[in-house]
Design a protein around this nucleic acid. Structure first.
Length: 430
RNA sequence: GUGGGCGUAGUUCAAUGGUCAGAGCACUGGACUGUGGCUCCAGUUGUUGGGGGUUCGAAUCCCCUCGCCCACCCCA
């Protein structure tokens, strides 16, 4: 609130709808998650790629698909000053594919494996686990069609979940075929639903003509019952897709990677082929997917690049962190030492001492002036500092500094040059 | 885009249409002059989201609007 003359004007700014700040102490769990991903993905040979958060709008229309909800109604699109249509990225794959083609990365040793992290933007109505700006950690691998690639990437996702300590995650697996076998399956589905269509929910009736695979996804009980016995994708795969799927499952078995086959697992983006998978949890409200991905063997080619098979996944950071919060108690970093001072001369001495201790690697907080020793110690205590140094007139006179261990109340005096040893000694015990 | 729930202090929440809208926590200070946590005391923070209406009187009832949450659609 600001006051202007007698008039009070209330200015209560808030971030735009569905867009959130990430504050300490929450930020530490984000940092830990990102660091864990980075470290683990590098072990599998994935390197970071940084693509822009805006692209020409066409990039997304062509990759995600013209008739998807994302493109039809969820993109943040605007014209730049030269009148070009620009869009804030709603997902990460399109940009990576564009970069792959633009820089001719197929000329490097295959497969090319990337990971990235950053914000995505979708204009949706926010709810639990869904935001207008949300963060993903994504992974893409180009140039390898062998199912061993699929197995590696799925296993990597699983070990990531383990590495950050998430349990109770379900891995669902399916194959949705390729451009050869999917049309056949679609026809089989249409045939099966044809005479029952009137009994389905309005949404499913709409899906029938728009995207019949989505009927498999419907949560309405009546529809679940009606689709009982419907043809399943795995039964309609062509030999190539079927072999691929079998080989993948064999490798997952060898790797002792637990998964559930879900023949009704359908993905919302147009570009997927063959393998699709999802990591789900029951603690996320109605958005249960915490990570999802699949193969997209045709996308690079459709984009005007060389025929290049590819596979990837994306982790929804907010959803992941929602789950992590249930188990983790958040702690902000705690100072090793607080330097309390009385008087200007001591304050200056403390300022210098703090710098010297930080150079030695300690996390040091100081007193900025103006408060009683009591309130300084209270501040040190509330920050959960483990150790306090006190500098006042007595200490300036004697050249010794008082120290106190706030955890066990031990205290004493020490020569200034011995501080780091007593600090080390006290910190080691906690 | 559709539907439901909720908006009161920094925060968590009270207040049946009826005095000046309160309490816990938090924060600041003091009791304790240079020693934290515990205790006690004191202090600060509100156009009750905003606007309009009904009424002698509205945080409370009605309408509009904005925001948040949840669900649908769809997705990470």
């Amino acid at each position: 609130m600001i006051r202007r003359g007698k008039e009070k004007i209330q200015l209560r700014y808030s971030a735009p709808k569905g867009i959130h700040d990430i504050l300490p102490p929450d930020i530490s769990i984000w940092q830990k998650t990102e660091a864990t991903a980075k470290e683990l993905f590098q072990k599998y040979g994935y390197q970071e790629i940084r693509t822009p958060i805006i692209e020409h709008t066409d990039i997304f229309i062509r990759s995600i698909g013209e008739n998807t909800d994302i493109v039809e109604k969820e993109m943040y699109t605007f014209s730049d000053r030269a009148g070009r249509s620009i869009t804030l990225r709603p997902e990460g794959t399109a940009s990576v594919v564009r970069a792959f083609i633009e820089h001719n990365l197929q000329n490097f040793t295959s497969p090319q494996k990337f990971y990235y992290t950053g914000p995505m933007f979708r204009y949706e109505r926010p709810q639990k686990g869904r935001f207008r700006q949300f963060y993903q950690i994504g992974v893409e691998a180009f140039g390898e069609r062998h199912p061993t690639m699929d197995a590696e990437i799925i296993t990597m996702l699983c070990s990531f979940m383990k590495a950050i300590g998430l349990e109770g995650i379900n891995f669902e697996l399916n194959s949705i075929g390729c451009e050869k076998c999917r049309p056949d399956y679609k026809n089989a589905l249409l045939l099966f639903f044809k005479d029952k269509l009137d009994n389905f929910c309005p949404d499913c009736q709409r899906r029938y003509s728009l995207n019949p695979l989505r009927i498999l996804d419907c949560k309405v009980e009546r529809c679940i019952a009606l689709r009982h016995g419907s043809p399943l994708i795995p039964e309609h795969l062509c030999d190539d897709c079927s072999n691929h799927f079998e080989e993948l499952k064999e490798r997952l078995r060898i790797l002792q990677m637990p998964y559930t086959l879900n023949p009704e697992l359908v993905r919302g983006l147009d570009y997927y082929t063959k393998t699709t998978f999802e990591a789900t949890s029951n603690h996320l409200g109605s958005q249960k997917a915490v990570a999802a991905g699949g193969r997209y063997d045709k996308l690079v080619e459709e984009f005007g690049g060389p025929a290049t098979p590819a596979i990837g996944f994306a982790i929804g950071m907010e959803r992941l962190i929602t789950l992590l919060m249930e188990k983790t108690n958040l702690l902000s970093p705690v100072p090793d030492c607080f330097i309390a001072t009385i008087g200007k001369e001591a304050e200056l001495k403390g300022l210098l001492l703090a710098e010297q201790l930080r150079e030695k690697g300690y996390h040091v907080e100081i007193h900025y002036g103006g408060a009683s020793l009591k309130s300084q110690l209270r501040r040190a205590d509330r920050m959960d500092s483990r150790f306090v140094l006190i500098i006042g007139d007595d200490e300036l006179r004697s050249g010794k500094i008082k120290w106190k261990n706030l955890k066990n109340k031990e205290q004493g005096e020490i020569e200034i040059e011995d501080i780091s040893s007593i600090l080390k000694n006290n910190l080691e015990r906690y």
